[in-house]
Each structure stands twice: as structure tokens, then as C-alpha cells.
Design a protein around this nucleic acid. Structure first.
Length: 371
DNA sequence: AAAGAAAGCGCG
DNA sequence: AAAGCGCGCTTTCTTT
């Protein structure tokens, strides 16, 4: 893969150089910015400026697509070089004496209670693009074993529904409806089968973003709506999901009055900056405070599930990875059914007192991409 | 030469 | 003026 992709990178470089009229380092944001906005004179209206100049990040390239053919080349170049340097070249070097790659899970790094993974980070192995999934396919179990992966479906949103006590939202989850479509339908005031793709996409962005204080500006940037449309959409959303609004307000009050927020199980994160006189610092602290109970409760539940599984799967399967809402193990092919059932049962039943049904999807494969 | 900032982007 | 949260790694470029 590395050789094939390197060849394509070379071709892309040559094409970019000829469009620019000179050779430059396309991996240098400074040089690339010079090419786009000075040499090629692309419009800078609406392009974000950083400390050093105009940004060339993906969000800005989106705004320039169609303006010049070089944009698509840059995007492809970025995708390829990212995958080559971070994964294809790096991972084989980290193979240990036993022929495998071992990450280190840190338990005291994150502010929400999640694990983090370093050296290498195995919690950010590609999966979202076709090419990315090919890298994931390179991860295989030991000889004769297969992978079984189990992940919580809509984990974050389900916990938000619980913590906010949003009965309607809980009911939707318990009856297995397409939650993004349902949110779109209610927000636009239409029926669920009238929801089109772009409406569903907007609702999905909102479902994840607005929970943590995404602004009309942010929603507009993420969806292509106008600022006014985005503002209206958010207002409607909180009309429909009143308990969510009240819950977020309650968390902010708690952060200000008690100086901390906490998970469902009572694990705390201090929130001193919600009293900052600096708007940016304060706003950022408020968003973090709104997020922590949800993300932190997810983390707590995952750890509980991992502890239970360690026992239940003992002698039957070996733990491989945890990626925030998913667990990957390996086992003998003949044990797949049993292992799958145990994982699903333990994870879904990790905390029966929760007033919501947790849903876990289980998959199997001879490589990680297949799971 | 080493350390650090900035930009960018992979994942949940 | 700036406007989802949580991470870690690579490259470039500057500072020490």
C-alpha cells in the first residue's frame, strides 16, 4: 500500500506544481496558503485566519471547491500523506518481539474519565474512508483466531436522554426508531418518512453538537445552512427537546455554584473556569462542563463492562482493544457465537437501573476492517 | 541539536 | 471577537 500510495502522491505533487507554476512543499500550510491565496488569487472572503495567515484546513478547502482544480488534488494529497506517515510507515516499526503491536492505555490522562491510547494510539485507526478501512484490515488476530467486536449504538445520545430525563427521547430509543430522522421530523414539524437526507444530516449534527453548546455559527459552518436558518433550527430543536435544554442549564448552574460537574456515578470534574472573566475561557469551560457528565458516564459504563467481561470471557477470549464505545477481543472461531452473546449481554446489561435500553451491535471477522 | 508552537487530521 | 466535547501523532517552522 505504501508504495502504491507514494506513487500517487508523486503524481499529485507534479500536478500541483504545474498548477502553481513552481515547486513548493504541499505539506507546509504556510507555503500552500501562499500558493492558493497569492499565486492563484483564490478568494479569501470567509476564509478563517490563524496566527500565521489564512487557514488551509479541510473546512476552508470545502469553501473553495469548484474555484480551482488544485483543491481536489490537495484534499487527496492530504488524505494519502496522513495515512502514509501516521499509519502505514509508523505501525510496522512498532511491532514487538512477539510479532504484535501493543499500545499503552493511560488511565489518568483525560478530564472526562476516558482512557487514552499512546505509542501507538490504537484508538484512532482509520475507518471513515474506503482507503482508511484498508489500513484497518491490516490488523489481524493471532493464528487460528478471529476478532469479535461489540459497540454501543448511539451511546452518547442515549446517556444524554437519561441524564436529562427526557422521557420522549428515551421512549424513541427504547422503540428503536432512527433517532436522527426522528429529530429532523420533529424539528421541521414533518412526518418521519418525509425527512430528506439533508434534513437528517442536519439533525445528526445537532444531536451531537448542540448538546455541548454548538452555536448557530458552528451549525451553519458544519451544514452549509445560513446563520439564520441554523439559529432557527437550534431554537426549534430545544422547543422539541425541552428537557435537554433544562438539563444543560442545570449543569451550568451546578458548575458555577458547586465548582464541579459529575457523572451518573458521581465521579467529578472541577470547573473553575466557568467563572472566568475572559469570554473565550468561560465559554469553553461551559461547553466542557456540559459535555463531561455524558462522556464521563459513557467512560464509567465502559470500564464496568470491561471488568465484567474480563471475568465472563476468561479462558474463552482475549481482550485486544477498547475504543471508547467499543470492545475488540479475539477467540477461536468455534467460540464466536458464545463470545458474541456474552459481550452483548454484559454490555447491554451493564447497569440495569438505567431507565433506558442500551443497544450493542456485535460483529466478527478475520481482520479488524471486517468486524 | 533539542524543544516547543502551530496547523492539520485520524478516531469516538 | 468567537462560538460542539474528548484524545494523540506528524510535519513544518521557530526558538532555545
Amino acid at each position: 500500500m505504501g508504495d502504491e500510495l507514494a506513487a500517487e502522491v508523486s503524481e499529485l505533487e507534479q500536478q500541483m506544481y504545474s498548477m502553481a507554476g513552481y515547486e513548493f512543499n504541499a505539506s507546509s500550510p504556510a507555503q500552500l496558503s501562499e500558493v492558493l491565496f497569492t499565486k492563484l488569487q483564490l478568494p479569501t472572503a470567509g476564509i478563517k485566519k490563524g496566527k500565521t495567515g489564512y487557514s488551509t484546513g479541510q473546512k476552508e478547502l470545502d469553501k473553495l471547491r469548484g474555484q480551482h482544480p488544485i483543491i481536489e488534488l490537495i484534499e487527496r494529497y492530504r488524505e494519502l500523506t496522513k495515512l502514509i506517515s501516521t499509519y502505514i510507515e509508523a505501525l510496522p516499526k512498532l511491532m514487538a518481539a512477539d510479532g504484535r503491536i501493543h499500545t499503552t492505555f493511560n488511565q489518568d490522562v483525560t478530564s472526562t474519565g476516558r482512557l487514552s491510547s499512546t505509542n501507538p494510539n490504537l484508538q484512532n485507526i482509520p475507518v471513515r474512508t474506503e482507503l482508511g478501512r484498508k489500513i484497518r484490515q491490516a490488523f489481524v488476530p493471532s493464528d487460528g483466531k478471529v476478532f469479535v467486536g461489540a459497540d454501543y449504538s448511539q451511546f452518547e445520545l442515549r446517556l444524554a436522554a437519561v441524564l436529562a430525563g427526557d422521557e420522549k427521547l428515551i421512549e424513541d430509543f427504547n422503540s428503536d426508531v432512527d433517532i436522527h430522522a426522528k429529530t429532523a421530523a420533529e424539528t421541521y414539524g414533518i412526518s418521519i418518512d418525509e425527512v430528506n437526507k439533508s434534513q437528517r444530516r442536519a439533525a445528526k449534527v445537532i444531536n451531537f453538537g448542540v448538546l455541548y453548546g454548538m452555536s448557530p455559527h458552528g451549525l451553519a459552518a458544519a451544514t452549509g445552512m445560513s446563520f439564520t436558518e441554523a439559529k432557527k433550527f437550534i431554537d426549534h430543536y430545544f422547543e422539541v427537546r425541552k428537557p435537554i435544554r433544562q438539563y444543560l442549564d442545570k449543569i451550568l448552574t451546578q458548575a458555577r455554584e458547586q465548582g464541579f460537574v459529575e457523572t451518573y456515578f458521581g465521579r467529578r470534574r472541577p470547573t473553575p473556569d466557568v467563572k472566568s472573566s475572559n469570554f473565550m475561557v468561560r465559554s469553553s469551560a461551559e461547553r466542557a462542563a456540559m459535555n463531561m457528565p455524558i462522556q464521563g458516564t459513557e467512560a464509567d459504563l465502559m470500564k464496568l463492562a470491561m471488568i465484567r467481561l474480563e471475568d465472563k470471557l476468561s479462558g474463552l477470549a482475549d481482550a485486544i482493544l477498547q475504543v471508547h464505545d467499543s470492545i475488540l477481543v479475539e477467540c477461536k472461531p468455534e467460540d464466536v457465537q458464545k463470545v458474541s452473546e456474552i459481550m452483548k449481554a454484559e454490555m447491554e446489561g451493564v447497569c440495569p437501573e438505567l431507565p433506558i435500553k442500551l443497544k450493542v451491535d456485535v460483529g466478527t471477522g478475520v481482520n479488524w476492517g471486517e468486524v
